[in-house]
Computed example of a mutant assay.
Amino acid sequence: MERAEGKNTSPDAMRFGLVSVLLSPSQVYRGLREQGALHRLLWGFSGAVLLNGLMTGMAAPDGGRGLLGALAVVNALGMALLTACAGWLALGVVKGGLPPLAVAVPCVAYGFGVTLLVSWIPGSFWFTEPWKWAVIGTGFRDLGGLSGRRAFGGVLLMVSALVVLFKGIFMMQGA
């Protein structure tokens, strides 16, 4: 097998890439922004959504596995879309003007994509949710050009808006 010219295909480079995806979101955001390849985060997110649906369906008790897997896919896509909209608006509030969608969408796609790979495991919520919001905040800082405090404020605003939205929905249902 020939080695591609100018590309490092050693196992160490691949392992570092995987480790950086999981542990160094800032490095991933910077690298993809420099390459002009932020759309790759959307492809990674799509794969994570499908894998999450498959694993959720497989983890279901007998009967209804396909339906549960499909619901997991729809839930992941819907929540990511809702969160991206909330993030776009939160960035606009914190930054003082609406940024391009190309800032908010990759941040949310990366945050969801990384955590969806593990979130099908029962009880993983307590680990994946804080990590997702930290990854999104890192994206706000690195892609949105915000300070750490403003990025934290943007994430806090997003989480608050989503909690209020769902609390309102539950109250309208009488729950």
Rank of each mutant, 00 (worst) to 15 (best):
E2Y: 03
E2R: 10
R3G: 12
A4E: 09
A4Q: 10
A4W: 02
E5Q: 08
T9M: 04
T9Q: 09
S10H: 11
P11C: 05
P11D: 10
M14W: 10
R15L: 13
V21D: 07
V21T: 12
S24V: 01
Q27T: 14
V28F: 11
R30S: 14
L32K: 02
Q35I: 08
A37K: 15
L41N: 02
L42D: 07
F45S: 00
S46M: 09
N52W: 00
N52K: 05
G53L: 01
L54M: 09
L54G: 01
M55D: 00
T56D: 04
A60Q: 13
P61D: 15
G63R: 11
G64K: 09
G64T: 09
R65N: 02
G66W: 00
L67T: 10
L68S: 05
G69M: 03
A72F: 01
A72E: 00
A76Q: 04
A76D: 02
G78I: 01
G78R: 05
L82W: 07
L82D: 07
T83I: 09
A84Q: 04
A84I: 05
C85R: 00
C85S: 09
G87D: 12
W88S: 06
K95W: 14
G97F: 10
L98N: 11
C107Q: 05
V108Q: 06
F112K: 03
V114A: 12
L116T: 02
L116E: 01
V118Q: 13
W120K: 02
P122K: 05
G123R: 11
G123P: 09
G123K: 04
S124G: 03
S124P: 00
P130K: 05
W131D: 02
W133H: 05
W133P: 01
W133I: 01
G137S: 12
F140V: 06
D142T: 02
L143T: 02
G145V: 06
R149C: 10
R150N: 11
A151F: 03
F152L: 15
F152D: 09
M158P: 01
S160I: 12
A161D: 05
V163Q: 13
V163H: 14
V163K: 14
L165G: 03
L165W: 08
L165Q: 04
F166C: 07
F166S: 07
K167Y: 09
F170R: 13
F170H: 11
Q173A: 14
G174H: 13
